[in-house]
Design a protein around this nucleic acid. Sequence first.
DNA 1: CGCAATATATAGTATCACTACGTATCCACA
DNA 2: TGTGGATACGTAGTGATACTATATATTGCG
Lengths: 280, 280
Amino acid sequence: MTSDSLLQRILQESHEMGTAEARVARFVSTQPNQVLHMSMAKLSEECDVSDPTIMRFCRRFGFQGYQDFKLYLAQSLVPSAPFAYEQIVAGDSVENIVRKTARNSLNAIQRGLEDIIPAQIEAGAKLLNGATWIGIYSSGISEITGVDAEHKFQRLGLRCAAVNGRKKQWLHAETSKPSEVALIFSQSGHTKQMVEVATAVRARGARVVSITAADSPLASISDVLIAVTPYERTELLTPIASRLNHHLVVNMLVTSMAVISGSEFPDQLPALDSWQTDKI
Amino acid sequence: MTSDSLLQRILQESHEMGTAEARVARFVSTQPNQVLHMSMAKLSEECDVSDPTIMRFCRRFGFQGYQDFKLYLAQSLVPSAPFAYEQIVAGDSVENIVRKTARNSLNAIQRGLEDIIPAQIEAGAKLLNGATWIGIYSSGISEITGVDAEHKFQRLGLRCAAVNGRKKQWLHAETSKPSEVALIFSQSGHTKQMVEVATAVRARGARVVSITAADSPLASISDVLIAVTPYERTELLTPIASRLNHHLVVNMLVTSMAVISGSEFPDQLPALDSWQTDKI
DNA sequence: CGCAATATATAGTATCACTACGTATCCACA
DNA sequence: TGTGGATACGTAGTGATACTATATATTGCG
């Protein structure tokens, strides 16, 4: 999906159109909401053009036809609430901090949603589902994400472990079995330790699924890459945002694995919790 | 517009439909993206129903017809559309799961933003800032939130520990010092163990900050309550949503503590990370 | 001016959405 | 158990719709 909205593209290209087609562009971009409920005939009448002109107009933007165009137009018209990143500064009131933290999180997820490719999630889920054991590797700030993944995977009944610490990671990576899968979290994909773990794991015949930045060293040596764009901003005072999308991916993986394998829902878990903890 | 998305409405009403119409509901709610590019004929064939059934299905929700329905469906599928809750069901495509997971998270954060009271965050932050040591207590699904908090607090230079496990929690709670503060995470506020920990801590003269549901037993015996409304929905297949707001609170606390204490920003931490991990 | 390339319109067709009507299925009550 | 009436669903038919193939005008250029 491009960053430009459809309407903007129409306005831009309208200069390179013929007179008839330009009339269509003009009408569509000024009255898009009406267009949604118009047929080609009505629109062509309104613009004083023939309907093939409208077809050409639609195809110009890569759509299959009028219907396809209308569908996309409808989607581009939905009022999206953009949550811009708001930096938190030293003097901010707590009220501001609360608001900004929440909005930054919203922003992070929205951006993540644009980036994450379902097919990659699916590929990862399938690979993980077939593993006899999953080693979950991460370092530094991502360790908690790893623990989170371990927790949720175990709820699915999977055998796995969050492997933290350099020595333990080496130990596990170098004893990988071909039927196993390593799940690696790395924001940048440039962390030396993680790249080495991936290399060691693959040398032993096991597969690597990594959640990291595309076009990174780690990404290039992974069997399945789940690309998550790291935040270029200095995340001053907004500790969660950068990791939020990794959490999101974990949840998507867990849910996908559950659905793909057709297993019982993983989250009969409220029930599971209440089973092991007394309530009063 | 109701608070529920179209897909959610379909799912709900599907129980009050006949068998044929219910088949349509099931297909539409699990493969909405495909439906967008289908004609009535194709959809009716796919669902083994006749096209008038599909008409009736559309009209049931107040649409003029199939076209109208498709238009609205398209709009409700755009990722950044108003974030209504959407339940994930067994047959969902991975694409669906990705979208729904993200949107449910967005929805959760938005609700959190409405619920969380800045003054409570501020009170909590001040108390925590003054503690000589912070014990972080949680159980079950919330343990990871606790670990997360521990991690972030330590980055602020605070002395703290995530205390997990019943016995360890008892040990720590019963040896609390008056200058210490206990931070307790509990979704419901009804978990017996957590209430007992809070009681024991207070008996020793220490303070209790709890992130839990208002009007719960735990809330009533806390020095500072940070109220987070738990989700009443059965969170089938959406493991994050219920905990997301707790994470949010942790971040708000951390940031507030940093700002209140006037300390250096906690997240010079990207830098901190790169200091301890080799990059390639 | 005349050729070529582009832009636009006409005519035609398969398909589509939608309607009117008919048939089966289910349920209350005799 | 049987029967009337309502509900749930499908069949058949129709005008409109999106799209195509082809023809005509319009423009630019040597």
